[in-house]
């Protein structure tokens, strides 16, 4: 697997870990990832994530098992957005998952959600 794809695989590993109940071993992770990545590659990613405190590790038998770290107290967060105006994204190339809304957009969004909820109640 090329180095170019490591970041992509990292995102996928995080997604699989987020969707799993409890811990997963490296081989269990390999099975759930697309494209059959190499065991060692997945391990590399897990070490990277462990290093960044995005996952936590435990031992099951002789194997290490991993899960997504979402517990506030354990998260090691870095200050990294201080000088990056991510919110405004001046180059329009990077994009956030969802931007903030202005008042009229927020109202429109709430209306859409309510309408959908009502429809579902009428036709369960």
């Amino acid at each position: 697997m090329s180095r170019r794809k490591l970041g992509q695989l990292e995102a996928e590993v995080l997604a699989v870990l987020a969707g799993a109940d409890g811990y997963l071993s490296t081989s269990e992770l390999c099975e759930r990832l697309n494209g059959d990545p190499a065991y060692t590659t997945v391990n590399t990613i897990l070490f990277r994530l462990l290093d960044k405190k995005m996952v936590e590790r435990s031992q099951r038998g002789r194997a290490f098992v991993y899960r997504l770290l979402v517990d506030e107290s354990e998260i090691a967060a870095e200050r990294m957005f201080g000088h990056l105006r991510v919110a405004s994204d001046p180059s329009h190339v990077l994009s956030q998952f969802a931007h903030g809304l202005n008042n009229s957009e927020a109202a429109a969004l709430r209306a859409v959600l309510n309408e959908n909820r009502n429809q579902n109640e009428e036709s369960p």
Binding site: R3, G7, L14, F81, H83, V86, D89, L94, Q96
Partner: peptide, 30 residues
């Protein structure tokens, strides 16, 4: 912008706003 995000590649930022973004490139991630 790419230089700045790539310095941090991926990880968790200490920010109270809900932010998620994909970082493209060799050492990219989320």
């Amino acid at each position: 912008d790419l230089q700045t995000v790539r310095q941090h590649t991926s990880g968790i930022s200490d920010h109270d706003q809900p932010i998620a973004m994909a970082v493209p490139g060799h050492h990219g991630g989320v």
